[in-house]
Design a binder for these strands. Structure first.
Length: 291
DNA sequence: ACAGGATCCTGGGGGC
DNA sequence: TGCCCCCAGGATCCTG
């Protein structure tokens, strides 16, 4: 579910609520997550204080005063929230940290694609990211690096954007929205893009992610921020989930195709496989025969 | 090495 | 109301 803007919103919401708090008690749910919770971690956490919370790609990192790092991934339906302990407990709760101000940090995940684990120190965390070859943050995306990364791939733009090794934090929604804003068909092969097109794509990624953060991310169904609030960027979607609805630029019906195994949305006239948009192409030509 | 597909889960919505 | 099928913000295996 959550991509960079949603994870960033969670972190910003949680920061004032958990930083400085001490863990008084830990409760685990009846069902295991993908990464099973190790009960030995409880002893390493109890009585310790949260020093900081930050994000890397779609990962949430909570720093403890012991130097250990709590690493959380929300998967598709994960929710990490902090609220008064008196708030009713929903189902599918997997972790509850009771804090020293009568509040609770809660991890809920219906589909259990998410994970939570404790790492010994910052070095262990960085090793994990290095081993996964986690790519740069979008706001640190060097144009030269990105041109090379896109151009050397004989796969679709959609697959490239979803690859966390190329750029960290982009998911299905913002891949589609970035392609839309760049006027590029998500099925275009990276190797066939011109440098100018790759630069356009990079600009579009930065723009859409910054814009989405301002709106507290997008809520399709499950996503809520660290305070329990929903996102608002779904109102700004140009293509995602708008199959059959008119393109906000040219009025053509938005198309949906499965690309790289994921549902992909685009305007068939503004985002053409041959690289030309509606303005520069005859209206009679509906689809490029190429690719 | 690379690209594409299957797989892990649960629940909601649409069609019948 | 019930059943069946499809769909969903992600990452990781396995295969060719």
């Amino acid at each position: 579910m959550p991509e960079l803007p949603e994870v960033e919103t969670v972190v910003r919401d949680l920061r004032p609520r958990v930083v400085g708090r001490v863990i008084r008690n830990i409760t685990t749910g009846p069902r295991q997550l993908r990464t099973p919770w190790n009960d030995a971690w409880n002893d390493q956490l109890l009585g310790h204080r949260f020093l900081a919370i930050r994000r890397r790609g779609k990962w949430i990192i909570v720093e403890l005063d012991s130097g250990s790092r709590l690493l959380v991934h929300l998967g598709m339906t994960g929710q990490l929230t902090a609220m008064p302990a008196t708030e009713p407990q929903p189902d599918h709760l997997h972790l509850i940290f009771a804090l020293d101000d009568e509040s609770e940090l809660r991890f809920r995940d219906v589909r259990r694609f998410g994970s939570a684990r404790l790492l010994a120190d910052e070095e262990t965390l960085q090793e994990l990211f290095t081993k996964a070859k986690l790519g740069p943050e979008p706001f640190q995306l060097d144009p030269g690096y990105f041109r090379t990364a896109v151009h050397k791939a004989n796969r679709s733009l959609k697959a490239i954007l979803l690859d966390q090794r190329v750029v960290a934090g982009v998911g299905n929604i913002y891949a589609d929205e970035a392609c839309s804003r760049a006027g590029l068909h998500p099925g275009r092969r990276g190797v066939r893009l011109t440098p100018a097109e790759v630069d356009r794509l990079r600009d579009a990624i930065l723009e859409v992610i910054a814009h989405a953060i301002e709106h507290r991310g997008s809520t399709i169904r499950d996503y809520i921020g660290g305070s329990g609030l929903r996102g608002g960027f779904q109102e700004e979607f140009r293509v995602y989930g708008r199959t059959g609805e008119p393109c906000k630029t040219c009025g053509s019906a938005i198309s949906r195709l499965v690309i790289a195994g994921r549902s992909s949305h685009f305007c068939p006239d503004c985002q053409r496989m041959n690289g030309r948009g509606a303005k520069s192409t005859s209206r009679i030509v509906k689809r490029s025969p190429r690719e």
